[in-house]
Amino acid sequence: MIRQFGWGEFLFLLEGARWTVVLSLLAFTVGGALGLAVALGRTSKWKLLRMVTAAYIQVFQGTPLLIQLFFVYFGLPLLGLKVDVWVALTIGLSLHTSAFLGEIWRGSIQAVPDGQSEAARALGIGYVHRMVDVVLPQAFRIGLPATISFLVNLIKGTALAALLGLTELTRSGQLMANITFQPLQVYGAVALIYFCICVPLTYCSARIERRLNAAR
C-alpha cells in the first residue's frame, strides 16, 4: 500500500516550512548585523578596510552559495569546532547574507547626499552619531526595497539546506516524494508554499520602491 499525497502529507511539508522560516530569520538577523559592519567598512575612510571588505563581497558574490555552505560545513571541524548542521548552515548563510546586504547598504549609504554628512561634520558631530542619527536612517529608507528582495533570495537560498540534510521545506518534499511516489504533486505543493511565503515580501518590496520613486 503506497501512501497517497493528502492533507496529512501537506501538513508534514508545513512542518518543514517552519524550519525554512526559522533558518531564514536566523541568517537574516546575524547576517544583517555583520552586513552593517561590512557596509561601514566599505564606506570607511581607510583604504585598507575598503579593500578588505570589497574582496570579502567579491568572494561571496563570485562563488555559488552551495560551495560556501559546503566550505563552512567541512571547514569548521578543522578549527576544532563540533559541527551541527544547524550551526554550519546558520554561519554559512549569515556570511553569505552579510556580503550581499553589505553591498546593498553600501549603495544606500552612498546614495545619501554628501551635504548631509558634511553638515553633520560642520556641527561637530562625531562619526558614531553622524552615522546613527543622520546617515543610516536615510540610507535605511533607500535600501529597504533591495533588502526585502534579498530576504526573498535568502528564503529561496535556504532550500540548499536540503542538500546538507536539514529537514526544512525542500528536504521534507524530497522525503514525501520518495514515500508517495507522486513527485509532481509534492514538488508542486512545495513550490506553492515557498510562493506563499515569498510573494507578500516581493509585493511589499515593489510597493515601497514605487512609493520612494514617487516621492523623489
Partner: peptide, 23 residues
Amino acid sequence: IELIRNTPILVQVFFVFFGMPAI
C-alpha cells in the same frame, strides 16, 4: 514570471527532473 521568481531554483530542478516523468 512571479511563480518562477518566488520559488527556489532547487525546487524547480527537482520538479523538472523528478516530476516530469510522472506525465
